[in-house]
Design a protein around this nucleic acid. Structure first.
Length: 580
RNA sequence: GCCGACGUAGCUCAGCGGCAGAGCAAGGGACUCAUAAGCCCUUGGCCGGUGGUUCGAUUCCACCCGUCGGCACCA
């Protein structure tokens, strides 16, 4: 990319996006929390001329996928690949511009994961130990804690899960359960001894405390608080292997019945996906530009991990520890974790009717424009706390904000140009103070919105874009070219020209947030190529250019339409293999 | 139970030591280029509760209540 201004030294920015778990489709909450924000951020960073690599992929391993596959009588690979294809298709329709969206099943990922394992083992950061685990003799498999249920020893609740009692909220050990049974077969689990490899996190305690102390200055309070909590409690070793036949094989002889477990291999994906990106381009060393520390131990750029809040310790404690142990690779610069989207004030649920659950991405994208979805998820993004989703609010923000403020500012102007000037951009006369003020506001919006996005305050950034649209509406009302065209044609022409420059800027400013409509506006302004190849600065609209007949940028959602659409949103049941 | 974040106008959310803010909703007005969209004006809050620190607290501290999340075998 050559968008850099002369005074800008391009930075290497790695945008690592949380790896969606391929157990089923993702819903709007996932998109709001982890998937749309990095896309906005990455698009902006590209426009200012940085070397951006946005990578992620589907997380294909883990127990829930094996359980769901067993129930359907297919292999875990089939199930995961089917879900991966669905997720990738949704992401494309949402406009997520990944440089590499891959999976944890690639040869590169297996090789890199095994290399991490071997290196950490050789350096003494892994150890082997025996533990007692629950085993389902009927299913012939070991059971994770939450796949065992029984009576809670604290409150007597009969359907307590092995990890936690949903009734009294206490954390449990499955061995404590009275009358335990397997969630998969109902059989009574046995306890068995089994051997596993552990990541020796206590060895990183001091180094992590030092790193978090420095790195967390710009983190969100919840991210820092959560991380400090883990550190204060004292790190414990954590098993990184499981008794499964689905996962990355352990690169040692004699461990055929065990696999490296998902959380260990999934975070490595940020790195392996970068390596794979280079390999696919025939540049096997390209990853070094984002990851390799220099001789002073300095990172080559900034590394971001966009995740949901449930994922924080993996990205601020465990993954950094793995990177420190491996050596020579950059640690995260920021981990912008979002809170959750709730639905109609309730905790989200994937098992309720549409009125009480967040829609899955495929259905949402079937019913609504991607930009309308992106707009809602960003203008009300759960950056500091949980935010609420409701269909009323979705409709209102679409109609009263996106359509009425931004869409209409563009459309009223282009329509006026079409009807009174035959669509030809007029030549301006002398600028008034009001004209100059409008253009100055437009200029400053670039730096304001840019700063917001760079600080990952995406909600503020989008509000800044909307504020410019509002300012344009005000300017037009004040200038009233529909009046001055009768009394002072040159004044009207100048007002129109000024307003058109602002619309031309809005096309650029909105591009990271609303990529599809920005592209449509780009075309409506008679420009060639893609808006996404433009630099982050005003692009003028020359006098004399003839613009095509305008069409509204966005679709208004009428009550009847919305009701009809929601009527098609039938209850969807997806078995993700998760215990309920 | 323990840890963390959050609790601000009817709704959705900003602000975080010095006369309480935005958008939307509600009420009123002038206009007509526009998907009856836009613009102007107005109404509206003991900033969850109690105590403390301070000249001064929505903002800092403690406790309480509520919501959400985590508590290491979900990812």
């Amino acid at each position: 990319m050559t968008n850099a201004r002369p005074d800008h030294t391009p930075e290497y920015i790695l945008v690592g996006v949380a790896w969606p778990y391929a157990s089923g489709p993702r819903h709007l909450g996932h998109a709001a929390g982890a998937y749309v924000p990095p896309d906005i951020f990455a698009r902006y960073q590209r426009m200012i001329g940085n070397h951006v690599l946005m990578v992620s992929g589907s997380d294909m391993h883990g127990t829930p996928i094996t359980v769901a596959a067993d129930k359907r009588g297919i292999t875990p690979r089939q199930l995961a690949e089917e879900n991966h294809a669905g997720i990738a298709a949704s992401f494309e329709r949402l406009g997520l511009a990944y440089d590499n969206y891959t999976t944890t099943l690639t040869p590169t990922h297996y090789r890199v994961t095994q290399d991490f394992f071997t290196t950490l083992l050789d350096k003494g950061y892994l150890f082997e130990a025996t533990e007692t685990a629950m085993y389902d003799p009927q299913a012939k498999r070991f059971l994770p804690d939450r796949y065992v249920e029984g009576t809670c020893p604290h409150c007597g609740y009969e359907d307590a899960r092995g990890d936690q009692c949903d009734n009294c909220g206490r954390t449990l050990d499955p061995i404590e359960l009275i009358d335990p049974r397997s969630k998969i077969t109902g059989a009574t689990p046995e306890t068995r001894e089994t051997n596993h490899f552990y990541l020796d996190l206590p060895k990183f305690q001091t180094a992590l405390e030092a790193w978090v102390g420095e790195a967390s200055v710009n983190w969100r309070p919840a991210v820092t608080g959560f991380t400090q909590g883990w550190l204060k409690e004292g790190l414990r070793a954590r098993a990184i292997t499981r008794d499964l036949d689905w996962g990355v094989p352990i690169p040692l002889p004699g461990y055929d019945d065990k696999r490296i477990y998902v959380w260990f291999d999934a975070v490595i994906g940020y790195f392996s996906a970068t390596v794979e990106w280079g390999e696919l381009r025939g540049e096997p060393d390209a990853w070094k530009k984002w990851w390799a520390l220099d001789e002073h131990g300095r990172a080559p750029g900034r590394m971001y991990n966009f995740i949901g809040k449930d994922n924080v310790p993996f990205h601020t404690v465990i993954w950094p520890a793995m990177l420190m142990g491996y050596g020579g690779l950059a640690l995260p610069y920021d981990v912008p974790a979002n809170e959750f989207l709730t639905i109609d004030g309730m905790k989200l649920s994937s098992s309720r009717m549409y009125t009480a659950r967040l829609p899955f991405l495929p259905e949402a994208l079937e019913l609504f424009d991607a930009d309308a979805i992106r707009f809602f998820l960003t203008i009300n993004a759960p950056e500091n706390r949980d935010t609420d989703f409701s269909w009323d609010d979705f409709q209102r923000r679409n109609n009263d904000e996106l359509v009425a403020t931004y869409g209409n500012a563009v459309h009223r102007l282009l329509s006026f140009l079409q009807s009174k000037y035959d669509g030809v951009v007029p030549t301006p006369g002398d600028l008034t103070d009001a004209d100059r003020a409008m253009l100055a506001t437009m200029e400053s919006t670039f730096s304001e919105v840019g700063n917001d996005i760079d600080k990952v305050k995406l909600r503020d950034g989008l509000r800044g874009v909307m504020a410019l649209a509002t300012a344009l509406n005000r300017y037009l009302d004040d200038a009233a070219p529909w009046k001055t065209i009768k009394t002072d044609p040159e004044r009207a022409a100048t007002s129109l020209w000024t307003a058109l420059q602002v619309v031309a800027a809005l096309r650029v400013l909105s591009a990271p947030f609303l990529p599809f409509s920005a592209e449509r506006l780009h075309t409506l302004l008679g420009d060639e190529g893609s808006v996404h190849a433009l630099p982050w600065q005003p692009l003028g609209l020359p006098a004399g250019r003839s613009l095509p007949k305008p069409e509204p940028l966005f679709r208004k959602l009428e009550d009847d339409d919305l009701a009809a659409l929601l009527d098609r949103l039938k209850p969807t049941v997806v078995d993700t293999g998760e215990p309920t």
